[in-house]
Design a protein around this nucleic acid. Structure first.
Lengths: 240, 240
DNA sequence: TCCTGTTATTGACATTAGTCAAATCAGGCA
DNA sequence: TGCCTGATTTGACTAATGTCAATAACAGGA
């Protein structure tokens, strides 16, 4: 829970390349991107830094240039805390909050040392008005993201903890059949919060998946047959 | 589970007025709206009609002109079924699916006799490219909707069934303090699916809320003090 | 290597929500 | 009115998940 000591940096040339590869900005012309980079600020933060907290007014769109960031929500009286999303480099976040101008519903914390680009709200809004392509790209990006959330809501309502864990594991590989060994990208406590259960329950969910060909060894998870897991989750056509 | 017998109708003049009041199309110039109405189709369907099913390819954006429609998701092997959203007249739906062009993650069923406007996918995409204002309006609308889902995910992960029911009740009134009597807009089975619990559990959740000043009488729910409920849900600034 | 604090697992138990079945209630209609 | 059907509630029980506490495994630093 490091406090917010940020080191502002120059925006590097390669950062613009990263921007160009962010799905949200796919296909945007170079001048627009350069203009965005112009007004953006890049900060390098140590692990544990709180980029912003739930309830803060949305003042910028963020793009994760390097590292990992967790988006988590909590109940007022603290204690409980759930991870809504875990982001990797090349992903933009909190677009919805910035567009509505309302306070963040979630907070963002650096899970590793990270480099983050901040695009001020007003600059984004100006760019959106100036570049119809940007608006369309964001619309597509937000729509894809929206669907992930819809799936999440359905899973939370309809699937068990072990099934959700299985879905999480399936999300770690693009393959859908055969044997595979995946490496857990986070410690289990964080994964538990992501899946929406307590760490103890996660342990037991892993134990349960043993019956479906899942063997855990530290950070490595061996899955004997992905198709078995897919079946266990009653996943049909949804993995499109 | 009526089959899909639809009666196509003329698009009426007042339908364009409804369109103009849909948040997703707020501020769009009249010519664009008229053009959209031109290519749209209006159908009148009886209660229970399945407008489309989970897994169908998204082929149109829908606007509910009259009646109520439920969006529900289910697990493959049937049986379980959850209501992701309940829509009222004047709301557009499945924008995200149409924009991505992927199959619907949810199905839509008329909960009452309804009149629905269908805007074909390609027409929408054309209009978006032609009208930057439309793209911006949809972006704003999708962003607001997105945040509702984020809140939903948080609530499902962090709150109990009774708390989620309390949140649902709070959603029926704009007020946040004082005494109020709200009328349940649906039967309890549907509300249960919306809240994400079984009907039996909903009954018991209502019983539990009695301890917080909630008295149920058929479709009418008397809430002695909204502030008490807000507090019970640990809702802070979130109701912005 | 040993210490030490963190992370993960396990066990015992409490709580919550789901299941199944029966009882009750409500509304529509002959 | 009296019956019927479906919705809702209630009870008894089961299953799933959370809680608390103890233990075990691990990683990093002295």
């Amino acid at each position: 829970m490091t406090t917010m000591i940020q080191v502002a940096e120059e925006v590097r040339g390669e950062d613009v390349d990263i921007l160009a590869r962010v799905p949200m900005f796919a296909g945007i012309d170079a001048p627009t991107l350069a203009r965005m980079a112009q007004v953006a600020r890049v900060v390098r933060v140590p692990r544990g830094t709180v980029l912003f907290s739930q309830g803060d007014d949305a003042k910028a769109l963020y793009v994760l240039l390097e590292g990992q960031v967790g988006l988590s929500g909590k109940v007022e009286d603290l204690g409980d805390d759930t991870v809504v999303e875990i982001l990797d480099a090349g992903e933009a976040f909190v677009a919805a909050a910035v567009l509505t101008g309302k306070p963040y519903l979630i907070g963002a914390t650096a899970l590793t040392p990270a480099r983050v680009l901040e695009l001020p709200r007003q600059a984004l809004l100006d760019d959106l008005r100036a570049s119809p392509d940007l608006a369309l790209a964001m619309l597509g990006s937000l729509a894809r993201h929206f669907r992930l959330l819809v799936r999440e809501v359905k899973d939370l309502k309809l699937k068990s903890a072990s099934q959700r864990l299985a879905l999480y594991l399936l999300g770690l590989t693009p393959r859908r059949r055969g044997t595979v060994i995946v490496r857990l990208p986070h410690n289990k406590g964080l994964i538990a919060a992501r899946v929406g259960v307590r760490p103890e329950t996660l342990s037991r969910a892993f134990a349960q998946l043993k019956g479906h060909g899942v063997v855990v060894d530290g950070q490595n998870v061996a899955i004997a047959d992905l198709a078995v897991l897919v079946d266990y989750c009653h996943e049909g056509w949804e993995n499109v």
